[in-house]
């Protein structure tokens, strides 16, 4: 099968999986991500699509691509590791929140209630993956004649329409990847999944044995980051 067609099929398949999952009660879904490292070229399309989708300010990153050079010249290769939030089954960030502002939804997604978070940043210290960042209230286009529209346009995180304003949440809050819950509930895949140029990222319901992600995890060898900490991430890597 031609590569392009295979990729398209994966996309269609994931959308079908999503639709099926949305017909179940939320507590029966378990969203998860599979990232095929052999396909990642570190183009950062996921990083950028996440920024565009969630309009995150400078320093706030929900997903990034770690790049490392291994070996010495001329025997060198680069390894890439896209890192969204792991949406751990046992998330250490949730336990430490003094006000319960960050919690796991029925669907297993670790979220933050922007209107409750006091901005103490304890959860950032507790995350073993550096997946949480603090909104310091900075702007990309601050100091230019006007803030660019991509910074002032409303966002739809958690299904709430918000226009970022100085001193108002989510400024002063901790922010993180939420698997684009607001898109999922509209039957859309997370932005990073949609925009991955090499189809290295896959998404779906881990509780559904027929979903693409379940199938991939069944058929290929996968690993998770820092397994020894017992966090049980729902982001799986294929090598």
């Amino acid at each position: 099968m031609p590569v392009v067609q295979e990729m398209e099929n994966a996309l269609v398949r994931m959308l079908d999986d999503l639709e099926r999952a949305l017909q179940k009660p939320p507590s029966e879904r378990r969203w998860g991500m599979v990232i095929d490292l052999s396909k990642c070229v570190a183009c950062d399309a996921c990083t950028v699509s996440c920024k565009a989708e969630n309009k995150t300010p400078p320093g706030v990153n929900y997903t990034v691509v770690l790049k490392e050079e291994v070996g010495t010249y001329p025997n060198v290769r680069e390894v890439f590791l896209p890192r969204p939030c792991m949406h751990c089954e046992n998330p250490p960030c949730v336990d430490v929140c003094p006000v319960g502002a960050t919690y796991q939804t029925e669907e297993g997604v670790v979220v933050i209630d922007y209107d409750v978070c006091i901005g103490c940043r304890y959860c950032i210290t507790a995350c073993p993956y550096g997946a949480r960042t603090f909104d310091f209230g900075e702007w990309y286009t601050e100091g230019t004649p006007a803030l660019a529209s991509y910074e002032t346009a409303p966002t739809f995180e958690y299904g709430e329409e918000r226009v970022r304003t100085d001193g108002v949440s989510p400024e002063g809050n901790v922010r993180k990847c939420h698997f684009c819950l607001h898109r999922l509930h509209e039957g859309l895949l997370p932005a990073c999944i949609n925009d991955c140029i090499g189809r290295a990222r896959y998404f779906g319901d881990l509780n559904d044995p027929d979903s693409l992600v379940s199938e991939m995890l069944r058929e290929r060898y996968s690993f998770r980051l820092k397994e020894e900490l017992g966090t049980r991430p729902k982001v799986f890597y294929l090598s």
Binding site: D95, V96, C97, P98, V99, G100, A101, V116, C117, I118, G119, C120, R121, Y122, F134, D135, S169, E171, G172, N173, V174
Partner: peptide
Amino acid sequence: FDLGHMARFYEVYTRPNFLSMMA
């Protein structure tokens, strides 16, 4: 002064999470 939202400190009283050492 270190809090991101100073006005919300009262939440530690109104909705504490006692799994958190901070609470």
